[in-house]
Design a protein around this nucleic acid. Structure first.
Lengths: 321, 321
DNA sequence: AGCGTTACCGGTAACGTTCCCGGTAGAATC
DNA sequence: GATTCTACCGGGAACGTTACCGGTAACGCT
């Protein structure tokens, strides 16, 4: 009961046709001022809201963007906020789905959004995902799709991501400026692009300052806190103990920090530490641990803008044909 | 080009009517086995997917839940994950919108979702929101709506939230068990239900153990880190310095911790500290600071379940009428 | 007087689906 | 042989909206 008023109700009440009501409501030409006024005032009275469903069905677009992310940790949530910001501005609604880092979940999510719910996708791929067939479907329907943050070289699509090399470079510069000489790097798994880029950037900075890195100071370990803790313990026990550590994630920085504390050392006096910002933790924890800042909000905005460009580009093309 | 195949395409190709195709696809009776097989196999070949848009328009429900949250911090994101979990299970898709703690944004979001995009709402209200007219519209359309986490007494709706008193009680018990006697509480603003409930719970625990609280040890201050830092400094400077502190949020706990460090004291030896978990920070930071755990994921699941109950309840009613 | 313009408005199809009501052919029943 | 069943299928309407085409007055112009 108390159903939404439709364009028909207005038409019937005013004894005019639905076409006229529709025109009046859209500020289209070919409608008398008086009728327009009557329509508008009645529609307000009935608190009429056009049905987006019907509209979407008619014009075959939903004005909705599907966003699929592996999770909603701090950085990603911030990116999503960025997406939301520009999407809303442009009259789009976003639909956020979490894949929970699960390949299967990611597939289900895309399928669901695909059945005429969204106009396109903005995606950060799950860490489990090695094959991209489910995304190919999106492209077959030639919907706009942009990937961000977690990108893969195997997936051909417009991408927005952090300049990881730049970040690594900054970290290196920072440590050198502070006067550290024997700098170690806790990198992630060897096959991870995100990790290698950050590492390369840092090495480049060291090179610029003609600082050589002890080979034993480059450690590839797992991405989590415990791995970093153990790796750091090893480093600190070795004869060639480093005087600074760059970890390519904040989670790892925390592990390193705990190891440093365990050894009774203090930061930044005895040893320097720089992380890579994916959590707002480091700044809070204690002075002495810095972190490369990720412009997450900006990345989100950029992704959304790129999406909209794609969108309109496609529209233009279809106009021509 | 390469458009989605529709039920019509299948019908035309097989020279049967759309009605029959529809029936075949839905495992309805009244359809020959052979035709059914033909339809199914062809639909797979064309990778047919039914249009949710058309379906929603027809049966006036979208199988989508609108979720409006003030932001996506750790706890809320976890709750959303809980919602997602049970919603997906039940065949619902969720649409998450962030109000950014802004009243205006919250209104815009509800309006948008309201125009036939969702079947109902799960909401955590923004801190700016004092008036609830935009939510009343939801109820007027008698859509299901449940509020969670941030609830307000002025908003009449099914609610799911943490038992804050219980949490406060746990915090108090914990500190007493550790042997602390002079316990201080850093509470939030006086008018905030969430804060008062936690405080009450803690006081109750102290009472049970016949521990009296020094009146100067109850401090109402702002919710953020800086406020807590200053309040703690005051506490530590006073003659009647407490030997433990309960802060009603983690953000405040961090402020307190920094103050404690600044004073050269160590935790938990010199002073105990318990926070209230809205971030995963505390467990990482350092041993010595505990935190009351919030079953965020469970709260999210509970909210979604409550929503579904509402939903089905409404359906039953409308059947009868 | 006849014609073209302008300013409106209405009818209908279409978007993709389901639902309801019929219809038809063959088989089964009497 | 006439009837009821059963099993299957098709035709239309409906959901709410817009797009397209056509129509009708009133007016001005020759």
């Amino acid at each position: 009961m108390n159903k939404q008023a439709t364009i028909k109700d207005i038409a019937k009440a005013l004894k005019i046709s639905t076409s006229t009501v529709s025109r009046a409501l859209r500020d289209a030409p070919d409608v008398n001022k008086d009728t327009r006024n009557a329509v508008v005032s009645l529609s307000e009275e009935l608190s009429y809201q056009p049905s987006r469903l019907a509209l979407s069905l008619q014009q075959k677009q939903t004005h909705t963007i599907g966003v699929i992310v592996p999770n909603l940790d701090y950085v990603i949530a911030t990116m999503v906020k960025g997406i939301d910001e520009v999407a809303l501005e442009a009259g789009y609604t976003v639909m956020v789905c979490q894949s929970n880092e699960s390949f299967g979940r990611e597939m289900v999510n895309t399928r669901r959004l695909l059945d005429s719910l969204v106009d396109g996708f903005i995606i950060s791929v799950s860490s489990e995902t090695k094959v991209f067939d489910h995304f190919k479907k999106i492209q077959q329907k030639n919907m706009p799709m942009v990937v961000f943050d977690r990108v893969s070289a195997d997936l051909v699509a417009p991408k927005v991501k952090l300049d990881n090399a730049e970040g690594g470079w900054l970290a290196g510069e920072h440590l050198v400026e502070q006067g550290y000489k024997r700098i170690a790097v806790l990198a992630g798994p060897k096959n991870l692009a995100i990790s290698n880029e950050r590492l390369e950037g840092c090495l480049k900075a060291l090179k610029r300052h003609k600082i050589k890195m002890d080979p034993s100071h480059l450690i590839h370990c797992g991405f989590n806190q415990q791995n970093a803790f153990e790796a750091t313990m090893d480093l600190l026990r070795s004869r060639t103990r480093p005087d600074a550590i760059f970890t390519i994630s904040d989670r790892m920085a925390i592990g390193a920090m705990l190891a440093i504390k365990e050894k009774g050392l203090t930061m930044p006096k005895d040893i320097g530490l720089v992380g890579f910002n994916n959590e707002p933790v480091t700044s809070l924890v204690t002075p002495g641990i810095s972190s490369v800042e990720q412009p997450a909000f900006e990345i989100g905005k950029a992704a959304a803008k790129l999406f909209l460009e794609q969108m309109h580009h496609d529209e233009d093309l279809s106009h021509i044909e």
